[in-house]
C-alpha cells in the first residue's frame, strides 16, 4: 500500500516539474518527487512484523524476522543529497529574483 502512495507522490512531483513555471514551485515539485522516492526506498526494506536489525540479548539469532537495514542507510544519504540540491536551487531562485524581479521563468524571458 505504501508503495502505491510513493508512486502517487512521484507522479505528482513529475507533473509539477513538467507544468510549473514558478521557480519555488518547481523546487517544491522536486521535493515531492524526492519524498516519493525516499518513501519507496524505505518501503523496500519493510517487513511486516519485523524487528530492528540490532543484536541484543533477546534478539541474538539470525533466524528472527528482521527488517532490511540497507534501504534505511540508503535513504539517509538520499535525504542529505536532496537537502543539498534544494538549498542550491533556492539560492539560485533567490539570485534570479534579484536579477529579474520575479520568480516566474516565463516573465524572466522578456527581461
Amino acid at each position: 500500500m505504501i508503495q502505491y502512495f510513493s508512486i502517487v507522490l512521484l507522479l505528482i512531483g513529475i507533473y509539477g516539474l513538467l507544468t510549473q513555471k514558478h521557480t519555488i514551485r518547481l523546487v517544491a515539485a522536486l521535493n515531492i518527487f524526492e519524498i516519493g522516492l525516499n518513501v519507496f526506498i524505505i518501503s523496500v526494506g519493510y517487513v511486516r512484523g519485523g524487528i530492528a536489525p540490532i543484536l541484543t540479548s533477546q534478539a541474538n539469532t539470525s533466524a528472527l524476522l528482521y527488517v532490511d537495514p540497507l534501504p534505511q542507510a540508503l535513504v539517509l544519504t538520499s535525504i542529505v543529497i536532496g537537502v543539498g540540491i534544494t538549498a542550491l536551487a533556492l539560492a539560485l531562485a533567490r539570485r534570479m529574483y534579484k536579477t529579474y524581479g520575479t520568480y516566474n521563468l516565463d516573465e524572466m524571458e522578456g527581461k
Binding site: 516539474l17 521557480t23 518547481l26 538520499s78 540540491i85 521563468l105
Partner: peptide, 28 residues
C-alpha cells in the same frame, strides 16, 4: 544567465531521481 543553470539543476535532479529509482528496483 542563471536560468540555464536552474534548468540544468531541475533536469539533472529528475534524471538522478530516475536513476536512483532504477537502482532500488534492481536491489529488490
Amino acid at each position: 544567465d542563471l536560468r540555464h543553470t536552474f534548468n540544468y539543476l531541475i533536469v539533472g535532479s529528475l534524471g538522478s531521481g530516475l536513476f536512483l529509482f532504477g537502482v532500488i528496483l534492481l536491489y529488490t
